[in-house]
Nucleic acid binder design. Structure first.
Lengths: 337, 337
DNA sequence: CGTCGGCATGCACACGTGTGCAATGCCTTT
DNA sequence: AAAGGCATTGCACACGTGTGCATGCCGACG
């Protein structure tokens, strides 16, 4: 017989009823100390473990599983976030359930998985998740937290970066570097956070009396996209003294593009990215950027989820997380001043 | 009444028995087409979903959950691997279950989680996982795949890089660059793969008539460790013409260390890393390295797991994955010849 | 027309667990 | 000594599902 031992096996060995075994493994249940000891000894001998699937089946409350819907895990900031979320969930007694999602995947499959496994909540950190996920979760009462996403469903909690402050900050950092005419590098429609930030950036440029000379666009918001944006920048011979990139990966690619083209360092524009990924601090780049603390982000998600689970009827909360300027070389050793 | 609908609710609405509902959702079961249609309509109306937890409880086979034990997710190669593994598992009908583990965590807690949830298998990609995990998995019959790990338990399948080829390759790449006296950058005892590779590297140096001048050591196998290794290298004024770094992150840090110290490019030693992480190809580094294909790695893990699940009694297989040399600037624009 | 085979369906049990309720036994109080 | 309270324990049911078995029905074939 090779099946895992169950409670009744332990009960038989310990000479008690199966209920007693169940109670021995339940905190606060009424069991005599010596009975509990005998049960625990029998359990140890058989290698018995409580089957949490069966347990969560019995309890009306959904399982302790939490779905983690994530895309673009190769983005180091997201990998870090997933790591922190998983740790936090495990520490809180939950079990993170990794659901990768890519643009073009069928969202219904994702929803099926979440509902089939009776998850007690979900955290969505993928870019541009389909609205259907939010609506279906709301319909079936699955507590949901959206990270840096647009408010697609009023019943989902949201955690977002303070995009307004970040956009203004970018403008001020370029201003500090002495810039007058600047460029924006990134796509016209990228993601919620990037778009919002860009809007605030452009507005603040006006308030500071600076000029937005135009925009260069890479095919994607990553290093490869930055390389191409830099080529465009060099080809167009823009007469600008500063560039704000949609995110750090793009900015690093932009720097690499300038470097590859052999542009002398004193001709480089001032550069400001956003996110403060680990690579931005490397001496090869030393990029001025705007920091979004992944620890803060993860904690806000966990708090938001806990709140949704505990008080499903409440108005879902919107948490806006602060950002901080990180001044490095790309706004110092510029040719301006 | 706010509980999720169950099969009996659907049965009542469709005017059939609960068995019929169960059969309607089971492939290959015997149900009349019009009955199935009526059941599906009722299910759609109520928003019914099969509860897979209860299903897996019924089926003697363990749940479709697979534990993904992972540490150091901020290592971009590992994040990529986790992403690929999660995708592959989902595609194969499994559900990945993310269990972060850090040095110092209690392994028993991890084992409890895996056994409590009756996982049908586990893939361990963390560095230096405690042996206890392997032994407990074996004891309880949980199919296990170890990625780039030492053979701690004979009953676990293993997927490892061809460390022997990689180490020899590193020596040959330095030889190609004209090196004679070389250095190894990395810790004496790091991880299984790194240690094995270093051994092969040193052996091949001898065979090629090259000299290992010594070793510089950073506090960690990442960018920060590389920075410090570079400082040591510069301080000791080693008379060498090439350096092999334990992995790419360390190599990138090493380059950044030389760059920060202002060492002119024609005085740089030839450099060879290992892994071919995305950043190694960036123009800022253009690092010669040894590629380990994460797609291959992920597929090997999934195959290994499937094999362990299908044939638990078989001898666990050991898959050795090929590596490939990636020649870039750090072995070209050297000062030699 | 009788028999047989195949298909659809329902009954009942099983999976492994938690817990309300009642029963039992012991200790304390009057 | 009787009564009452309390801790402990077992019985039985519930959670939501899959499936073997038996039954009933219908068509086909001899």
């Amino acid at each position: 017989m090779n099946r895992p031992p169950r409670a009744s096996d332990v009960a038989a060995l310990a000479g008690v009823s199966r209920s007693a075994v169940s109670r021995a493994f339940t905190d606060g249940a009424s069991v005599a100390p010596e009975t509990r000891d005998r049960i625990m000894a029998a359990a140890e001998e058989l290698g018995y473990r409580v089957n949490h699937l069966a347990r969560s089946l019995k309890e009306a409350a959904p399982s302790k599983l939490v779905a983690l819907v994530v895309s673009d895990m190769d983005h180091s900031l997201r990998a870090r976030l997933v790591d922190l979320l998983a740790r936090g969930l495990v520490a809180g007694g939950f079990r993170p359930f990794l659901l990768p999602w890519s643009q073009g995947d069928d969202p219904r499959q994702l929803i099926d998985m979440m509902l089939n496994y009776n998850v007690s909540g979900a955290i969505v950190t993928s870019d541009t998740p389909p609205e259907e996920i939010s609506h279906q979760c709301a319909r079936f009462g699955v507590p949901l937290v959206l990270v840096n996403k647009a408010p697609v469903d009023a019943r989902a909690a949201r955690v977002v970066q303070d995009t307004d402050a970040a956009g203004r900050m970018a403008a001020h950092l370029l201003r500090e570097a002495g810039c007058r005419r600047v460029l924006y590098a990134g796509q016209a429609r990228a993601s919620f956070t990037i778009d919002e930030r860009r809007r605030a950036f452009e507005a603040e440029l006006g308030a500071l009396g600076m000029t937005l000379a135009g925009q260069v666009t890479g095919p994607s918001q990553n290093h490869a996209g930055g390389l191409i944006a830099a080529e465009q920048y060099l080809a167009a011979r823009h007469d600008v003294d500063g560039v704000h990139c949609a995110n750090d990966f793009l900015a690093l690619g932009f720097i690499d593009g300038l470097r590859r083209a052999g542009l002398p360092a004193h001709d480089w524009p001032a550069l400001v990215g956003c996110d403060d990924i680990a690579e931005a601090a490397w001496p090869a780049f030393d990029l001025t950027t705007i920091r979004q603390d992944p620890g803060l982000l993860a904690n806000a998600c966990l708090d938001g989820l806990a709140d949704r689970i505990a008080h499903p009827a409440n108005q879902p909360e919107l948490q806006v997380l602060p950002v901080a300027a990180v001044r490095r070389a790309t706004t110092r050793k510029t040719n301006i001043d």
